[in-house]
């Protein structure tokens, strides 16, 4: 359903951005897929090992004349959907489905678009039993050398390893009200200050807004928050995505994977200048 008519959340402070990123009225991954790719999307299911994780929505679609693989973390748009989607918290089988489809994309040298919106990988008994850590680790390793272009857009929350598992990409973009962090501000505040009510201070300290991250070179682009009825916004987003894929499709496998390695290799290099 259209989500554009609610009052916009105030986004002056870091914590207000966090709340905006979690706003249940904002567009989710399936909305982006619908507005950018319409009827061309064919959903593909399952990790071929255990089950189909509905927190991850994935498939093929046409970006103009180019087939692309799309992998999104889906939170759900109403209570029923949110239950089905496990509130966008993926299990290991979700990350393994994502990796299966990335390897499939590599086989056909088809670009991969990841849409990330998660508070984190699911922390639960089944997830641990089935190797949540191993699933994420494998994605990080395999994505680094995936021989096809990968672009990740954070469209809401980017929660820690569960977000990073779909964000080892050639470029990472964020919506203006998206956040990306190693830990939730509530978790950080309760561990450090034994008081989750201090989440606003933690949010500021963690430097987790799109503007913070762009400021120190962690992401390549900030995208204006689109509204459901703003088709021209989706058209320009599509065009930006296509240009980025075209640029990276022109590279050799070696150039592409070297560029991706270098992108991450420089982060936190000691005495580098990427610090705010």
């Amino acid at each position: 359903m259209a989500n554009s008519n609610t009052n916009p959340v105030n986004t002056n402070t870091a914590y207000e951005k966090v709340l905006a990123a979690r706003d249940s009225n904002k567009l989710t991954a399936v909305d982006y897929i619908k507005y950018m790719f319409g009827d061309s999307f064919i959903e593909l299911h399952g990790d071929r090992r255990f089950s189909d994780d509905k927190a991850i929505v994935a498939g093929l679609a046409m970006l103009y004349e180019t087939p692309v693989t799309i992998i999104g973390i889906e939170k759900g748009r109403n209570t029923k959907e949110r239950m089905e989607r496990n509130f966008g918290q993926a299990h290991p089988e979700g990350y393994r489905k994502a990796l299966r489809l990335m390897k499939q994309a590599e086989k056909f040298r088809r670009p991969v678009l990841c849409l990330v919106d998660t508070s984190g990988a699911f922390p639960g008994i089944g997830a641990e039993e089935r190797g949540q850590g191993q699933a994420i680790a494998e994605n990080l390793m395999e994505m680094m050398t995936l021989k096809t272009p990968v672009l990740t857009i954070l469209i809401g929350e980017g929660g820690s390893g569960g977000a990073l598992a779909l964000a080892v990409a050639d470029e990472v973009w964020m919506l203006e009200n998206a956040v990306y962090s190693v830990i939730s501000p509530e978790g950080c505040a309760s561990i450090l200050w034994k008081d989750s009510a201090k989440a606003p201070q933690a949010a500021a300290a963690l430097k987790m807004t799109a503007q913070d991250l762009f400021g120190f070179g962690m992401i390549e682009r900030i995208i204006r928050q689109p509204k459901a009825d703003d088709q021209s916004m989706f058209e320009s987003l599509k065009l930006l995505i296509m240009r980025t894929f075209e640029k990276n499709l022109a590279l050799t496998d070696e150039e592409l994977t070297e560029q991706r390695y270098a992108r991450f290799r420089k982060i936190g290099t000691i005495d580098s200048e990427l610090i705010p």
């Binding site: 680790a137 990080l140 390793m141 395999e142 680094m144 050398t145 820690s160 390893g161 990073l164 964000a167 080892v168 990306y180 962090s181 190693v182 830990i183 950080c188 561990i191 450090l192 300290a205 963690l206 430097k207 987790m208 991250l213 962690m218 991706r260 390695y261 991450f264 290799r265 982060i267 936190g268």
Partner: peptide, 21 residues
């Protein structure tokens, strides 16, 4: 990951994994 280094520490997961690969 060390939360006091925010996103930079998260990115070390990707960086080290790349070197392992």
């Amino acid at each position: 990951a060390r939360m006091q280094e925010g996103i930079l520490s998260l990115m070390q997961m990707a960086k080290t994994s790349g070197a392992v690969k």
